[in-house]
Design a protein around this nucleic acid. Structure first.
Lengths: 213, 213
DNA sequence: GTTCAAAACGTAATTAGGTGA
DNA sequence: ATCACCTAATTACGTTTTGAA
């Protein structure tokens, strides 16, 4: 065992002297919401705890638990909270800050993944609906052509009926409706005959709204 | 300046004995695609160049360039290549390996983001198509109902025409057509009277389009 | 079935660049 | 106009998983 080329020397000497370095922190700003920045002076003695020979990667589970808990409450970390946490955990405030930074980065990635799979589901559902609609369109076109045939038949069989008053010219107007909007987009195959919306009304569906909520 | 609390102690004790270790590598597997893992024996002296007092985080641009170039060719890194690269770059083979690992991780994230935006575009396009289809359906239903009305009119005005032979029962079948496929899926809202919603009226300001542009 | 080096994963820490008070 | 903090990218370490011998 121990086939690690370099490093592997002196790990986890762990934190020596946890005292000190948390002395001048905690007090000194009484505002409600400094909201951000400019909280401490904190120059001079940076650091402290853990000077020479500090190799301890990996925080303990309790430390991580507390950090996670705090992260759950609020992803941002004000100085006050940072210093309090650092003290409670026996860590350098800088470490706490770093932990939060990294945690936010991780969270962002995870969120991206979640959004991806959500979007994917949504996309698949929409594709299905699109299929439904396509077959619906086919069905309706079929029915329509049947109806047109029927009309032709009726007109021929009893061809002294003069009552073609209003809407018999529709069979032609099907292809020549003005597009209400969306003059041209990248979407092909809809360049003319877009969206219709003549005398009919209503709207339907609205399921798409779910996609955004 | 220099307010870095910890670390900064002996990093990279680095590679001593640079000799050897490239002796038994190169040869010895004649397969085309070992595909993964298990390439070399390569125990013992890792390392390469760059020795004492090595503070250098951050690889030089040339180093990164060469690494990137190699990564572009192939994301996987066989021991042979690793050792060759390490030698050329004056790095520890382990550093090269780590660099590749991290690079792969980065690449994965970037790919995710790309796929996300691709999927998103696709999704939006599909939504548009779906909208088109929905209006198409409305249009057809409108036309169909007009046609049905026309048929009724014709039947009534010339009501001694006995030629209702084949397809005159259609006026009812509008709502009761068997779905061509997709008997039932997880998609709700299509169970009955799909998309029709009789005389109601519409609206749709179409402001939703703003959500995508 | 066991072994074990490399891949994969998770995360700590550093650096650089940007921002606001 | 410095200072504290942020994001993003990097480097490296530690642990777990994996697959070929």
């Amino acid at each position: 065992m121990n086939h690690r080329p370099f490093h592997d020397h002196m790990m986890l000497i762990s934190q020596l002297c946890p005292s000190d370095a948390y002395t001048q922190i905690i007090a000194q700003q009484g505002e409600k919401k400094p909201r951000r920045r400019r909280n401490k002076k904190n120059k001079g003695g940076e650091n402290g705890a853990s000077s020479e020979a500090n190799k301890k990667r990996k925080l303990s589970v309790e430390q991580v638990n507390l950090l996670e808990q705090n992260f759950g409450n609020e992803h941002k970390l004000e100085s006050e909270r940072k210093d309090r946490l650092a003290m409670e955990l026996g860590l350098d405030p800088r470490q706490v800050a770093v932990w939060f930074q990294n945690r936010r980065a991780r969270w962002k990635n995870k969120k991206l993944e979640e959004e991806y799979s959500t979007l994917k589901k949504s996309h698949e559902a929409t594709l299905l609906e699109k299929c439904h609609l396509e077959s619906e369109v086919l069905k309706l076109k079929d029915q329509l052509s049947e109806a047109e045939k029927e009309i032709q038949r009726l007109l021929q069989s009893g061809d002294r009926v003069p009552s073609n008053s209003s809407s018999s010219s529709q069979s032609q107007s099907v292809e020549a409706m003005d597009p209400p909007f969306l003059g041209d987009f990248g979407v092909d195959g809809y360049d003319d005959d877009v969206f219709y919306v003549p005398e009919t009304h209503y709207i339907n569906g609205m399921e798409w709204i779910n996609l955004y909520m």
